[in-house]
Design a protein around this nucleic acid. Sequence first.
DNA 1: TATTGTTATACTCTATAACTATA
DNA 2: TATAGTTATAGAGTATAACAATA
Lengths: 146, 146
Amino acid sequence: MPAATDALDKVLALSLLVGRDLERFERTERMTTPRVHLLWQLGAGGPSTQRDLAHALDVSPRNITGLVDGLVASGHVTREPHPTDRRATLVTPTAAGAALFAALQHSHAALAERLFGHLDEQRLGAFVTALDDTLDRFPTPLEQSA
Amino acid sequence: MPAATDALDKVLALSLLVGRDLERFERTERMTTPRVHLLWQLGAGGPSTQRDLAHALDVSPRNITGLVDGLVASGHVTREPHPTDRRATLVTPTAAGAALFAALQHSHAALAERLFGHLDEQRLGAFVTALDDTLDRFPTPLEQSA
DNA sequence: TATTGTTATACTCTATAACTATA
DNA sequence: TATAGTTATAGAGTATAACAATA
């Protein structure tokens, strides 16, 4: 029952809630989590090579081929020729892909409001500060495992 | 930049850290996430029928067959006859399975300490209370999607 | 030579539907 | 009839290794 374990358990319960929300979104959009992540990355980072996507998602290049295949089939992205490197392709969101990214952003913000909107400014500030202090103790999370 | 979105993003970053920690554990133990979850459930709830495990993990009964097959092959569980229902089996941890569960618990507690041990009692208390208030707004998370 | 992406192959997780053995 | 678990089948995500085209 140390309070630290209690805090971790509650954080995990919360992220489970977030996961459920994402699942609901995916069901209505006929989408899967890895494809949503790729589309999110594309929306945040703009058209990218498959190599860059493989790095960003921390997944093998072969895997990106499959995910992009699926997103091409569903009409969310296209493979465009890279302007200077003829080996590479630029994975580019279609209008439908961009619309889905916008919907994701909206859903994300709405969930955040639903989860934390009830906390007054001071409590929310203290909450975020505590998270910052915790995250600061782990240098470059994504590189840590490399 | 609303603070609510900021809070959600940081919670997700934190749960990503936790996920990385679990992955490291799984690599060293030659284990997968679904099997770890099953083993955790078994450790927490004691020997269980596959039907109960399917409910607890929110997964199809067929899927449990596969996960248990894998855990039997790796020597972490056995299928024991149910004392009163000859249709059912009691999935039961072996010594190795129980040891792995203990290691999981230990790793979980150590991670919690590493993440939150630096916060003083008052800040940690406020953090947990904020999480409680947030979680209380979502009645029975697991049933919500049903 | 090194890099980008694909084909070939394989394994795990996941689901539904049909089936067997029991309740 | 209903329930517990398995076989059959299918699809998505994941990986490594070998290969083609290009740098």
